[in-house]
Nucleic acid binder design. Structure first.
Length: 114
DNA sequence: CCACTGACGAGTG
DNA sequence: GCACTCGCCAGTG
């Protein structure tokens, strides 16, 4: 095992995700300074531990679906429960409306119109 | 070093 | 929306 310091970048971004919001792998990768390394994000999450203090349940794929079930049985169930507690709604197909729940990082320069 | 795998994303038809 | 393809890169055998 390695300290995986590079993952710190990824974890730091995930910790920035507020409750009731979700972020995509690609989005996290980009915010972490690793644009295009969405895979690396998922890989980092796989190495996560509960003591990591990382809201891993707020991470979903670009389709608004959960992919945790690929590693842990019923893992996606746990994720969904955690999200629903925070107010995140799921579609009948088990998908999240990213248009309403995707996290939007605070930009230093936001549009004057909004 | 080579081949295969893995919590993914974007482009093409 | 689905199937197929390429890119990304750390980990394991």
């Amino acid at each position: 095992m390695k300290p995986a310091g590079r993952y710190e970048r990824i974890y730091a971004v995930i910790r920035r995700i507020p409750a009731g919001r979700v972020a995509t792998y690609g989005q996290i990768a980009e915010l972490a300074g690793l644009p295009g390394h969405a895979r690396q994000v998922g890989y980092a999450l796989s190495a996560l531990r509960e003591q990591s203090m990382v809201p891993w349940h707020r991470v979903v794929n670009a389709h608004g679906r959960l992919s945790l079930g690929r590693v842990i049985p019923e893992g996606d169930v746990e994720q969904r429960i955690r999200l629903e507690i925070e107010g995140v709604e799921f579609d009948a197909d088990g998908r999240i409306a990213l248009g309403r729940f995707q996290w939007r990082p605070p930009r230093k320069k936001r549009t004057p119109g909004g």
